[in-house]
Each structure stands twice: as structure tokens, then as C-alpha cells.
Computed example of a mutant assay.
Amino acid sequence: MSAETVATAPEKGPRHVALIMDGNGRWAERRGLPRVVGHREGVQALRRTIKAAPDFGIRCLTVFGFSTENWSRPADEVSDLMGLVRSFVGSDLKRLEAAGVRVRVLGRRKGLPADIAAIVDRAETQTAHNDRFLLQVAFNYGGRADLADAAQRLVDLARAGELSGDVTEEDLGLGLSTAGSPPVDLIVRTSGEQRLSNFLLWEAAYAELVFQDILWPDYGAEALGQAVAAFGSRERRFGGRDAVEDAAPEATTVKAAV
């Protein structure tokens, strides 16, 4: 399926897609290669996917880059991942800026290496004026941590006398890393695993879920098109009911061609 095919009916497609980019390590291990090679190939897959996304009517892409739990990985792997962040921003930021992409980084800034924190700030500042496409990178991010931080914000506001009365969902949502971004329509996980792994727990409330049996380094326009097509087959009711009541849509596993 081509990007052009899906783009002919963009009103049925997702505007905001979130990706759990899983399978880099297994991709490398199956080839007898170090895990870092899988991560490097994963960066190439990310480049292909960002390039393809607008052709499917997608206007916001959120990717799970590095979780709060990933710090527990071996030190050499964490170091390699930080190196890839430096390399990606160094080589791609100007291109993304020129293409009208705004980069936004989700997650905690506290505890990041000083140079990585500076890179994050530069990526956001340098692309802040863009509005053609929004790329959100969840980095040092965890859904539970984000909810805890949002709750702490409300506590701080209450202590300062700036919040009174009942707390609303909107109040809590304003404290999340994703505040201000469009609602998540579709969450995709690669590698065949079927779980959220602490990703966008609040935002996933009415997102469609698609699980694809493809390792992330092999991802690209074709696999993204299959996920978008699966989304287009869903009937989204957001808790309501149609005149003819059908069974609620379930998560779908999509086998992608490699």
C-alpha cells in the first residue's frame, strides 16, 4: 500500500500517531551484531518514518525514544543511545527545521547529562516557529512519572493559593508533558509485543492500538501505511453508541512485510 493510496481519504486517517519503536536489540542479535548496530539502524527507520508520515495525512508523530526505566540498562548501551541522540540532532536538526517540522521533547529534564539537556533545548528553540508538522520525542519519559509530575503541579498550585475547588481532568492534563498537543489517535507498537510499556498512559484513553509484527529497524512507509489502514477500518465512538451497536474495536496485530 502506498502513501498516495491512503492520502486520498485523509479525513479517515489519524492526525496524531504515537510509535513504540521496539525491536532494535533483537534485530541486531538475529544478525549476530552488537545491539548498538540495531539502535543505529533504528535511527534510519525513524528518518524514513518521519519523511513518510505527512503523506498519510499525519500531522503529529510522537515517538518513544528513551524511557525513565531505560537508565537501568547496561552503561555502555545507555552511552551508545546518548551518542545517537547527539548524532541525530547534529545531522538532522537543520533538515527538520527547513522542512517545517517543530521538535518537542517530552519527559523529565532533571537528571539529563548537561550536553543532552542543551541539545534538547536547542532542538526545541530552533524549530519553535515551525507549524507544518509536530515531532514529539519522549525522552527520559514515563507515563506514570508524567502523571505524578502533573499531580505535583496541582499540589504546588494549591499550596500557593492558585488552585481551589475540585480538580478537573483538564487541570491535570495541563500539567502533562503533552499539554497542548493534539489528541493521540493511534498508538503503534512494533516487534510483535502487545503492551504500552508505560507510554502515554493518560493520552491512550481513546487511542486505537495497532501491534505490528516487524522489528523497528525494518520499519518505513509500507509498514506505516498498514497501520494507518488498520486505523481506517475502526469505528471510533469514544464511549458513545451508534444506532446499530457493534462490538467495541479491539487491538489489532498487523503482520508487516519485511
Results as ranks from 00 to 15, higher is better:
H16C: 08
R109T: 04
Y206P: 03
L201Y: 08
G111P: 04
C60P: 00
P249V: 10
R159T: 06
S197P: 06
T8E: 14
L106K: 11
G232N: 12
R26S: 06
G13H: 06
R40G: 02
D121E: 15
L157H: 10
F88P: 09
V101L: 01
R35T: 00
T68V: 05
S2A: 01
K51D: 14
G180F: 03
Q152E: 15
Q194K: 13
T8R: 15
R109Y: 09
G32L: 02
P10L: 09
N70P: 00
D166E: 14
G180N: 09
T5A: 11
E29S: 03
A128V: 13
R15A: 00
Q226G: 10
S91W: 08
W27D: 05
E250Y: 04
G32T: 02
E193R: 13
V228N: 05
N130T: 08
M1P: 04
D80K: 01
F238R: 12
L135H: 13
D80E: 04
L134G: 09
V228P: 04
G165D: 04
V120M: 11
P249L: 07
V254R: 11
F238G: 01
W27I: 03
S72Q: 15
S197H: 06
G220V: 09
V17P: 00
R47K: 14
V78W: 10
A52S: 03
R40M: 03
R59S: 11
Q152T: 13
A257L: 00
L93W: 06
G142K: 08
H16P: 11
A7I: 00
E169H: 03
A204S: 15
L46N: 05
T168S: 15
V103P: 12
R108W: 00
R15D: 02
K255D: 13
E250A: 15
Q126M: 14
I116A: 11
D242E: 14
R30M: 06
E193P: 01
D55M: 04
A75E: 14
S191N: 07
E245W: 05
L84G: 06
P10C: 05
A3C: 02
A75F: 06
S2Y: 02
G192T: 08
A160M: 03
A243T: 09
D121P: 10
A257Q: 15
S72C: 08
A227L: 00
G142M: 09
K255R: 15
L61K: 10
V244L: 13
Q136G: 14
S191L: 02
G23E: 08
A18H: 06
D131V: 09
T68G: 01
E11V: 10
M82C: 01
D92W: 12
A3T: 07
S181F: 08
V6G: 01
D171V: 07
A128C: 14
P217Y: 11
L209H: 10
T127A: 08
I50L: 15
H129K: 15
A158H: 11
Q212R: 10
V6Q: 00
A123T: 06
E124L: 11
D218T: 02
D218E: 09
Y141K: 14
A99H: 01
E208K: 13
R122A: 13
R234L: 07
A118Q: 13
G83H: 04
V105K: 07
V188I: 11
L201A: 08
P217I: 12
E124S: 13
D246H: 15
R95V: 10
Q44D: 14
V137I: 15
Y219W: 15
G100N: 07
A223Y: 00
A118T: 11
Q136R: 14
Y141V: 09
P183T: 02
